[in-house]
Write a protein that binds this DNA or RNA. Structure first.
Lengths: 353, 353
DNA sequence: TTGAAAGCGCTAACAA
DNA sequence: TTGTTAGCGCTTTCAA
């Protein structure tokens, strides 16, 4: 079990682990390094007895193959980078989980970075991952344009955009139709009688926020002839619970007082609900609330949160699939895999009056 | 911007990126590779004009340093492995976030693996990370014993246990006192008049589950003289929403019918709440419910969930801190950083009768 | 069936 | 101030 170096005197401080290389293994097994490499990579071409001897040596020395050397020699890194906007958001961790489940079975290990909407952090992650020679990256880009990904592009690093459309000559992508989702949510409010709506939205530098807003506007136009509706947009700095909570004061100060608030995601909605509860505002009687993402806990909130469901896990799996194709298939063509959002109507938007 | 190779004919297919090495950079800048390496690593020792020329060449070739080669040469991997039980559980992602925020600023990128309580998956991750020569690993071990980590130990890979105690001669660790947490939750139920309690617990192979149970028993013993209480344990396969939901049938079939259910974590509690709601059982009037972890949404559930708070983010930061010390400080001593749980009493356990 | 040796991209002596 | 070169651990011809 303990590492051994042959030679006149063992200069090894027992407390300090001396990295074991195939040379050490070779020495112990009395073979050449080439043979050790062979039993590791093409065991069939080496004689049974030698193979066993080498395997024993691997065991006794505690040898662990050095991936860097393997890669340097031309091997693959077995590594994929994943860059998301926010690890605290279950939507993204579900995507991660989906991707991981698919990629782990192919022998990949994932590097994960959370950018929190920071271009700079994104750039750092992407660069670090490139330096590590990841075989591919799955990313929810921060910026509207894709210039931060141009390096990946020119260097030919297989890249799949998560929850973000790209044109076919750029990248593969998995998306959910956010325009449609925003439209669904807004239309639902209009149809249930709300004419004064606040739309609590994140920074429009975030594509999801832009698209959902566009969907809202589409819904407004669609009902414009039939009835008069007004949507006021309230912009917050980030899609977090805290920001939702902080938006409540501004919502309550509005005049005329809106009858419904639509949030760009569930975390915001959760914050809004908390803020409203703190102010004694009843939902949905005083104010209806709808969210976006349909996070698992939404249906258990008080009141249960109306939300737009996105198949996060499936997005992750699909992204992994696209990446694998790009990595392996020489005839790979970029594709967009698009999912449809689904409105889940619950008590938070259902006016009992 | 496009890659160039010097030589009589550019044999580069423009569609295919040819990896750029420092040799390419050197050629373009008309210097030696050593000089390129110098401007990259010790820019101060090279003449201004040469440096600029090299920097330009780096830019124009799109050179990205190959970490494997750097590491092979003796450099550090700037990589830390994180292995958690369940990425879907916000408790773990909060820890991850805490660790990441600390480690990213030190130039590390994190590899993340989710074991889902599988020893096998854990072993795979740990091995992969060792092969990648991570500088350290943060891990919530699956098994009760730590044999799966013995390799890390003997190979001297700095390792910090997350949410899991270790003795000082083994590893550093960050923990929350789960026995105490379990005790707090159970005592609270007893004190509010519940004498028939179900404890929905996960597999006791999971240490958290064992400890929380122990806490429950401690609370039972403490009140035993004053009053008679009965705690029945219901074991589920995993700490997930679905498992909680599925446990409800068994709970409702119990006789005598319990008056309170204590769950080993909030995900289970969420599932239980959903299940109870589906059966028309009122909480807390018919049945009180308490959870564990105090996930962000708990206070907004209907009814708001009583739970035991654990400072997940702080755990992550503390773990990163311990790891950094072990990596850098030659006089490092293993330590346990222990946090105290806190009971958050809310409506789900507050019997209005 | 095995061994010897070149070389992957990089850094750090050492020499010039 | 810059260039030359050995060598990190591994895989893979090529020879024996």
């Amino acid at each position: 079990m303990s590492p051994k170096r042959s030679g006149p005197t063992p200069k090894v401080d027992p407390k300090t682990w001396v990295p074991v290389t195939i040379r050490d293994v070779a020495k112990v097994a009395h073979v050449s390094t080439g043979t050790v490499s062979n039993v590791l990579n093409r065991p069939d071409i080496v004689a049974e007895s030698t193979r066993q001897r080498v395997l024993d040596a691997v065991e006794s020395t505690g040898f662990i193959r050095n991936t860097q050397a393997y890669q340097l020699r031309g091997g693959r890194s077995h590594t994929v980078g994943v860059v998301v906007l926010d690890v605290s958001n279950p939507f993204f961790t579900e995507m991660f989980r989906g991707a991981e489940s698919r990629l782990q079975s192919e022998g990949y290990v994932l590097m994960l970075g959370s950018t929190d909407d920071s271009i700079e952090r994104e750039a750092n992650f992407v660069r670090a991952m490139e330096e590590h020679r990841v075989e591919g990256v799955l990313i929810t880009p921060v910026a509207a344009d894709l210039v931060s990904l141009s390096g990946l592009k020119t260097r030919g690093v297989p890249t799949v955009l998560l929850d973000r459309k790209a044109t076919a000559d750029e990248f593969c992508s998995v998306t959910v139709d956010d325009v449609r989702g925003g439209e669904l949510a807004a239309r639902h409010l209009f149809e249930t009688g709300h004419a004064e709506v606040v739309f609590v939205n994140g920074p429009t530098t975030i594509r999801q926020c832009r698209d959902r807003r566009q969907g809202v506007r589409k819904a407004v136009r669609a009902v414009a002839k039939a009835k008069k509706v007004e949507v006021t947009e309230l912009s917050v700095g980030a899609l977090t619970v805290r920001n939702g909570e902080e938006a409540v004061d501004r919502i309550l100060a509005m005049s005329p007082r809106p009858t419904a608030v639509m949030c760009a995601n569930d975390l915001l909605a959760l914050g809004v609900l908390r803020g409203l509860a703190a102010h004694g505002v009843r939902v949905p009687d005083d104010l209806a609330v709808v969210g976006y993402d349909d996070l698992i806990f939404g249906s258990m909130l008080s009141p249960a949160l109306t939300s737009v469901r996105q198949p996060a896990l499936e997005l992750g799996v699909a992204a992994a699939e696209l990446l694998l194709d790009e990595v392996r298939n020489p005839d790979h063509r970029h594709r967009e895999v698009r999912f449809e959002p689904e409105l889940m109507v619950r008590a938070s938007s259902f006016k009992s009056s």
